[in-house]
Amino acid sequence: MEILVCIKQVPGSNKVEVDPVTGVLKRDGADSKMNPYDLYALEVGLELREQYGGKVSVLTMGPPQAKAVLYEAFAMGADEGALITDRKFGGADVLATSYTLSQGIKKFGKFDLILCGLQTTDGDTAQVGPEVSETLGIPCVCNVSAIGAVKAGGITVMMDMPEDIEEVKVSFPCLLTVQKDIMQPRLPSYKLKKATESRGIQMFTLQDMEDTDEHHYGLNGSPTQVQRIFPPTSDKVQQKLEGTTAEMADQLYRILKKKKFTA
């Protein structure tokens, strides 16, 4: 079985602040890591390979230093890696990112199963997986909480829905986004790390893609445009309620009502 896991390098911490005077993002330097949700997707890929055979490839998109996450995946057991990188891909929103990934996937190979983490910790949209599947024209199942058997050209999985768990069978090729805790991700192995540290990876730039029209990528290929960024209006109120006990209780009731905790 040919398995692809899409992974992303994310900032090591979410502690970003906007300077209220200049409007400039203040960000803690170079600290970055693999998106934690992607570890679960990778683990699913590796376990399926162990059970059914085949190959696990990993793909990421970002600046050249993002290839660090590919080597992290190699140290966990992934077989092959590719990095999609080009300045022209910068400023991509969900649609342009998904399109770029789809183009990269087509370039990378033919896959039966594409695995993604449920969401990233920096963008938090959970939208890239489903958009990639649409762009590739394959089915997808999101919020997968458990993996069943692979047979007859498809895979059985559990989809976590608001009120129930649905057992669904989906035919290959398909894309799954998996939930946290679906499986316990293994630790990277020192032996594998040593053995793979000089492994080559493929690099895809705009020129390598089937579609080389730069209007479809990066900022130019993004329908959504960020108009401005600003610090959130501080909702961290610190208010001491005054009055008699009954009056304070009434005030609290109005606050809870306003915040929709009660009718």
Partner: peptide, 23 residues
């Protein structure tokens, strides 16, 4: 932005090649 909406909206946004803003 329910488990259904969070799958369906991106699938449709990609189909129309339009923008989608989450949450």
């Amino acid at each position: 932005a329910t488990p259904v909406g969070r799958q369906l909206a991106p699938r449709c946004a990609a189909r129309f090649r339009t923008g989608l803003t989450a949450d």
